[in-house]
Structures are given as structure tokens and as C-alpha cells.
């Protein structure tokens, strides 16, 4: 079995985002970057499936500038077998990413693509669904539990999905695109031994052009601005005072 796991390089979730003064982007100076947390969960799931099933090859892919090698090495340090970097220095959108992943999918023919449900920088939550549509295969988004093959249905994945209405279980025919939600697992820490091993694992480089994809984005970000924040109000001392404020001042109860 082969599992493809895309990894996006994003500002670390604990980083406070600062914008460039002209609003053209975020100020990356001194910002620590890491694997998008949802992608790390997707990779962890691939690793756990390998622990259970045995013969599984795990390929991690990143799309972006040369710096993405850091996240690919980190992914291989977690346990992925090999890595592919699609070098691209300009802006991309979800549809362009999906088209690049589609080309990689057709070359690699994985049985499963496991990816994060959204990246925590642009919060788009689209690439997996778009990839599934381009390939004409099934999808299970926002999954919190995955049961693969086995039993009567070796060609199906049973997925528990987190929806607004609660947990939903669906069965999806493989190959399929699955996107990971928070509760799927807790990604392992990288060990020193893992880092040593990762240095010897293959990291291939290619470009969208070599893959035959036109990655021109449909969406264009003109400007970024800080969202207006809420301000601290008043402290009340007692429950009675809180009720009085909510009732008479805010008039919300």
C-alpha cells in the first residue's frame, strides 16, 4: 500500500502573526515555521496505519520554496519513507495546489491521500476536496477515526467525520482523499534517531512545469489587514452585578 501525505510549511501556531507595514503579506522575520498541525496529524495517521498493516510506503510532498525541505525532513524524521518537493516561489491557491497534487497522484498512484483538513495560515479548507473532484474519487473530510480495509471490505475506508451536527460515519471506496481533523490522533515527537535516519532518505525535487501543470492561481490577495480586535470591558465583583449589567446595560438577557 502507498499513502501520499502533503505537508504545508506554515508559521508555527504559537507564533503571533505580524503584518508588513504595507499590508502585502506577513512579516516572516524571526518567525518559526513548522508542518501545518493538521498535516502532521495526517502523517501520524499514515504512520499508525503502517504500524498496523505492515507494508506501507509513505511519501510526503510539499509545494513551495526551497525552505519546505525543512518540513519534508521533519516528516521523514517522523517516519515517512521519501519526500518530494515541488519548488514554487510564487503564490498559489487551493485549486493550483490540487492540480499539482493531481499530477503527483497520477505519477505515484497511491492507494490513499491523507492530508490536513485546513492549513492554519490561510484557513482555506479546500485542497483535499478539490483534489478528490479532479481525480473523480471519493473523499472523507474532517475525520476523527479511520478504519482501513480488513474484514469484508478490503477496498474501503470507514471514516468517522466531525460535522456541525455531530459525528457521522461514512464508508469511502479506495483510492480516496481523507482529510484529518484534530481528534484523529496526537502526532509523535521527532527523535534524534529519526532525524539521523531522515538525512539518508531520498528527497526529490521537481516543479509544476515538469509535472505539466499550469499553477496560475484564480485568487489573488491584494492586501492583508489586522482584524479589529475586541476591547476589554469592565470587571464586575458579584453575580448580582453581572446579571444587572447583562440585563440593564447590555440588554441581552
Amino acid at each position: 500500500m502507498k499513502i501520499l501525505v502533503p505537508l504545508k510549511r506554515v508559521p508555527d501556531p504559537d507564533t503571533k502573526i505580524r503584518l508588513k507595514a504595507d499590508g502585502s503579506g506577513i512579516d516572516a522575520d524571526g518567525v518559526k515555521f513548522s508542518i501545518n498541525p493538521f498535516d502532521a496529524i495526517a502523517l501520524e495517521e499514515a504512520l499508525q496505519q503502517r504500524d498496523q498493516i505492515g507494508a506501507v510506503e509513505i511519501l510526503v510532498v510539499s509545494i513551495g520554496p526551497a525552505d519546505c525541505q525543512e518540513q519534508l525532513r521533519a516528516g521523514m524524521a517522523m517516519g515517512a519513507d521519501r519526500a518530494l518537493l515541488v519548488r514554487h516561489d510564487a503564490e498559489l491557491d487551493s485549486l493550483a495546489i490540487a492540480k499539482i497534487l493531481e499530477a503527483i497522484y497520477r505519477r505515484e498512484q497511491p492507494d490513499l491521500v491523507l492530508m490536513g483538513k485546513q492549513a492554519i495560515d490561510d484557513d482555506s479548507n479546500q485542497a483535499g476536496q478539490m483534489l478528490a473532484a479532479l481525480l473523480g474519487i471519493g473523499q472523507a473530510t474532517f475525520i476523527s477515526k479511520l478504519g482501513l480495509g480488513g474484514g469484508e471490505n478490503p477496498s474501503k475506508a470507514t471514516c468517522c467525520r466531525e460535522t456541525d451536527a455531530g459525528l457521522e460515519t461514512i464508508e469511502v471506496t479506495l483510492p480516496a482523499i481523507l482529510t484529518a481533523d484534530l481528534r484523529l490522533n496526537e502526532p509523535r515527537y521527532v527523535t534524534a534517531l529519526g532525524i539521523m535516519k531522515a538525512k539518508k532518505k531520498p528527497l526529490e525535487e521537481t516543479t509544476a512545469g515538469e509535472l505539466g501543470v499550469d499553477p496560475a492561481p484564480r485568487t489573488r490577495v491584494l492586501k492583508l489587514a489586522a482584524a479589529p480586535g475586541r476591547k476589554a470591558g469592565v470587571r464586575v465583583k458579584t453575580v448580582d452585578e453581572l446579571i444587572q449589567k447583562l440585563r440593564d446595560e447590555a440588554r441581552v438577557i
Binding site: S94, S124, Q129, M130, F142, T219
Partner: peptide
């Protein structure tokens, strides 16, 4: 969020969430 990105890709359209 589950369905519309899939529609967008079928229409070769960009999408904003």
C-alpha cells in the same frame, strides 16, 4: 466546506472560504 470546494474544482473555478 465539504461540498463546495468539490463543486469549484468540477467547474475549474477558484474558491474563497
Amino acid at each position: 466546506k465539504d461540498i463546495l470546494p468539490r463543486v469549484a474544482a468540477l467547474l475549474d473555478a477558484g474558491m474563497l472560504g
